[in-house]
Write a protein that binds this DNA or RNA. Sequence first.
DNA 1: ACTATTTGCTAAAACGTTTTACCATGATTA
DNA 2: TAATCATGGTAAAACGTTTTAGCAAATAGT
Lengths: 340, 340
Amino acid sequence: MSKKRVTLADVARLAGLSTSAASMILTGRPDTRLSPEAHAKVHEAAATLGYRPNMAARALRTDKTRTLAFISDHIATTRYGNGLIRGALAASEEAGHVLMMLETYGDPAHETRAIDAAIDRQVDGIIFAFVRSREVFLPSITSNVRMVMLNGTNRQCPIAILPDEYQGGCEAVSLLADANFTDGIVLLGHNAEVEEGLFRSGTILSRLNGIRSEMVSRGLGFVDELSSWNWEPENGYKLMKKYLKNSRPKALLCMNDRLAFGAYQALSEAGLKIPEDVSVVSFDNDEIAAYLRPGLTTIGLPHEAMGREAVRVLLDEKIVESETLVAMEPMIRGSVGGAD
Amino acid sequence: MSKKRVTLADVARLAGLSTSAASMILTGRPDTRLSPEAHAKVHEAAATLGYRPNMAARALRTDKTRTLAFISDHIATTRYGNGLIRGALAASEEAGHVLMMLETYGDPAHETRAIDAAIDRQVDGIIFAFVRSREVFLPSITSNVRMVMLNGTNRQCPIAILPDEYQGGCEAVSLLADANFTDGIVLLGHNAEVEEGLFRSGTILSRLNGIRSEMVSRGLGFVDELSSWNWEPENGYKLMKKYLKNSRPKALLCMNDRLAFGAYQALSEAGLKIPEDVSVVSFDNDEIAAYLRPGLTTIGLPHEAMGREAVRVLLDEKIVESETLVAMEPMIRGSVGGAD
DNA sequence: ACTATTTGCTAAAACGTTTTACCATGATTA
DNA sequence: TAATCATGGTAAAACGTTTTAGCAAATAGT
């Protein structure tokens, strides 16, 4: 039953050469002086035997496994940042690498275990990925394995990939401005005065800065700003429900899609049509955004591109320090109409 | 800079013993005759040096990597079946294993590449996971690595984990029956006559069989059955929109949550309240189910449990053939009221 | 015609474990 | 007293590669 693995020695024997020769030929070493015939024989032998190199043995010798670790807090086990995995997976496959998934649940004990597990297995590099970009803790790492932070930053690790939230903020405002909205714009999810002094993560701050600076440079202002600490559908629904009792906004700029999702329901219950009565623009490009009717126009987090970028940077040994900002992608759907 | 890895030989040297002794002690071999002092010395040495075994070397010798491959068609890169990963990840961690993710996009070329990549890396087992359970193709595998099919079946692989769709179908009907619905129940997504002879996957057939047999044994019947090949929100919306022009159902049994999602919107636009006017029950426990207002009562696919079960079975070498049916889990939310 | 150089290849060490076989030494038994 | 056995350990082989150093034959240089 148990097929004996075919080894390099088998190939060499069949080809009538030494294992050294076989090794050099199969790994495609450049400056070797083996004859064309030798090459042919070895390749043929390898093909007929169906030879596959034993990566454990190779790893032992070369310290390279063509395996990367993807250590995330909540990425693999929730739907957030699924695109990160998609991108990372695709890019590693293209690079002939394989991804090892480890989840830490944001828990330090799990983090150390995950890191140990990865390093024990001699991974060529580690991607640390986080649901919400932020400055992040990490257990100190003794090994000098390559690392990149995906959607997060950490001073121990000088390579980071982040979404360009500032640019995203600008884009969102531009969308409304270009649709000729000049007033009646409500910001849903943040109020500058109310939240004075409260800490928002760096990435959210960038998003807000982008929004506010673009508003100013377009000569616009919000008619109202509705504050909410949590950006869940529930909050969007309640805030809008209450707000609609006395006001009729023309456009909603929602801090994320989940708030927008809640707002949709409140608007619908108030008999308001999107986009005829109210336009809505938002952030993240959550999966729900496409399901809503009409489709939600939103400035998408470029998760897939970020995932790809992470492995690209990780594999490029020349890069030793860099902070990459990946552009956010406006997803134009049906929720923004034109102002009168 | 580059810290030299601390090796077993270092530990042995510090402990004043041979590597053989150190190895035996650290791997916790049972029937060795090394003294308690030897044990103590080795453990201490290992601790002070921070020794971590080189798994490549160990794998080379023992052919065990404590690594499993999770090869899926679209699981890792979409939000479907995220629970499968969650369960598999948790279970492998508990078992001291690590998961290697590979995605095939349902494409045979990717499948062979993924399988090769996994086997090259000497994984201890492979989980093949699929978004929709079905009989599934696989490139023939020469290696005699352990395999399990997760949410799918294949004759080459006699171990499979599947959701108990039949039982799920029964549960859904029971939910309505127990709420005293006796008539006005509409089935959304399937019509026995219209779809006569059309092929649905085995798992969907089981779901339908469960539904229909429980209906019969409860003495119930559907007042209407609305056929739709694709079960997307769009379809649910359109079907219900049209149906509501002439009819007023009391309860909706939706074939999945996405249909239900569409139906919600149609009901809302028709001014019907859930659950006061219409009760809704559905299948899958998609993430949207919890977001809807009111929360959607649905018979959940037990993805997490299935994922756990997959690694449990994979790691239990005694099991050589088995088909596990994992019970579906009714998620009671607010969408089912009581019949008058 | 002898010494260098190139050509084409191989032997053997090394990577870090696990495991088998064996070796002292002292205690027990016959 | 000699043979046996238990005790506590070690030496060395093996796993399958990669890589360094080197060897013999052929070619080139003087």
